[in-house]
Design a protein around this nucleic acid. Structure first.
Length: 424
DNA sequence: TCTGGGGTCCTAGGACCC
DNA sequence: TCTGGGGTCCTAGGACCC
């Protein structure tokens, strides 16, 4: 059996773990730049605030409903996520993080009654050790575990834990209740197209003929269909596996057309991407850069260019990546446009240890490479120990437009010595 | 005034090969 | 009227996820 453990209102729960005053009041956590709501407490959901609501639309309501809006604190959320994972690992050797707030867990060899008791214990322990409330869904396939989890969260009789067995009356009832769009892997488009065939609920899709689904749609949907029947066919990508693309992008704090300013942002993103690349021990063969104007401002001229620059050799050296990113930027930047967002993506990644050696490789170039590797390692070590941005290529100016707005970020309680909570 | 930042997989179609 | 018959590889774009 496979369990899906999902942290309820995760970002809000992380904030509440350290600030009890946030319990019981409507709390929202905002995206980067304090742009829109990306996590909501139950109280905020009850006020009808949807995911993605722009913060400025809520401003008039704040006082009346005593709404607390917080800037996002990803360092805290990342650390809390790994704490949850640690607790889960005491209950199973097979924990596969799926996102920052969801983890799949393997449970093998449990008798049905044991399974429920085990899941309930895990449910209690995560709460006790991390202060994060979770929902637990267990089923033979990932897609059904997702549905079980949803039931555990939304249907009060389950009390946060639901074990689902295909073929049971309980499973059938649940599938009939659940609309298609709530099935993992079925998005808006597929809901429309499936509707034309009279497939409207999760149950309808579970009853469909997989081969036909494959013909009319895709192998992906065929797998979903089989999984709903209880036949496992979705495996996780091995969590140890390296990413195939690495992206760093941001919306700016304000619109800007200033070449220097945007170039600085690109340089910053390139360096951050290179760091991420070295963390997973890969090298990149090309750098992709894009700019975007603000599509929410139809009164302004729109321009959203992008381009790719290939690297002479696969590399993880910040300086080479910076250089390529700057070249790409020069190629697409045009004055007279006001840009809203920019980003750098490293593509065509390969394992640093398995890259093919160039025919031009000589002892000298090897010595060079080793020296560069040591330089990058030192850079990463300093930035890791003292703080991100301690050592950079070129010094970013303090007032640049691309600096994030985060007016209301809570302390990084668990990852910075000088921000530890104080006990009186 | 104000609107997130990442990722994945699959498919169709074009370029190119013999 | 009619225009071979296979392949492979790559890329862009769509759809999905959190």
């Amino acid at each position: 059996m496979i369990g899906l453990i999902d942290c309820n209102n995760f970002y809000v729960s992380c904030e509440r773990a350290f600030q009890p005053r946030l319990e019981g009041v409507p709390v929202g956590v905002l995206s980067n730049n304090d742009g829109c709501v990306i996590a909501r407490s139950n109280e905020l959901k009850a006020l009808g605030v949807e995911m993605g609501t722009p913060a400025f639309e809520l401003r008039p309501l704040l006082r009346q409903h005593r709404i607390q809006l917080l800037s996002s604190n990803y360092e805290l959320y990342g650390d809390m996520s790994s704490r949850v994972q640690q607790v889960l690992e005491e209950y199973s050797a097979g924990v596969e993080p799926y996102s920052i707030d969801e983890m799949f867990v393997r449970f093998d060899g449990f008798a049905p009654e044991q399974m429920l008791a085990h899941a309930q214990e895990l449910f209690t322990k995560v709460r006790r050790y991390t202060h994060i409330p979770v929902s637990v869904g267990i089923a033979p396939t990932r897609t059904l575990a997702k549905l079980a989890n949803r039931a555990a969260k939304k249907i009060p009789i389950y009390g946060g834990v639901c074990v689902l067995r295909p073929g049971s009356a309980q499973c059938e009832a649940l599938l009939q209740q659940v609309s298609l769009g709530d099935v993992w892997g079925v998005g808006r488009r597929l809901v429309e197209r499936l509707g034309l065939l009279g497939i409207q609920s999760a149950w309808d899709l579970a009853q469909a003929e997989p081969k036909q689904i494959r013909q009319r749609f895709s192998v992906t949907l065929e797998r979903t269909c089989l999984e709903l029947k209880g036949i496992p066919c979705i495996e996780m990508n091995d969590s140890g596996e390296a990413r195939q693309r690495i992206m760093t992008s941001r919306s700016f704090g304000r619109l800007t057309g200033n070449r220097q300013e945007i170039h600085q942002a690109i340089r910053q993103f390139a360096q951050r991407s290179a760091e991420k690349l070295r963390t997973q021990n890969s090298v990149a063969r090309a750098v992709y850069v894009f700019l975007k104007t603000n599509c929410h401002r139809p009164d302004l001229p729109q321009y959203s260019p992008s381009t790719i620059v290939e690297l002479p050799q696969p590399t993880d050296d910040s300086r080479d990546i910076l250089h390529a990113a700057s070249q790409a930027f020069d190629a697409i930047y045009r004055p007279r446009y006001l840009f809203m967002k920019a980003g750098v993506m490293l593509v065509d990644l390969v394992d640093a240890n398995r890259q093919q050696l160039s025919l031009l490789d000589t002892p000298e170039s090897r010595a060079d490479r080793e020296r560069n590797d040591r330089l990058m390692a030192t850079l990463d070590k300093l930035n890791g120990r003292i703080g991100r941005g301690t050592v950079t290529f070129g010094r970013p100016s303090a007032s640049a437009a691309w600096h994030l707005r985060c007016a209301n970020r809570t302390p990084r309680w668990t990852t910075h010595w000088d921000e530890l909570p104080k006990v009186h």
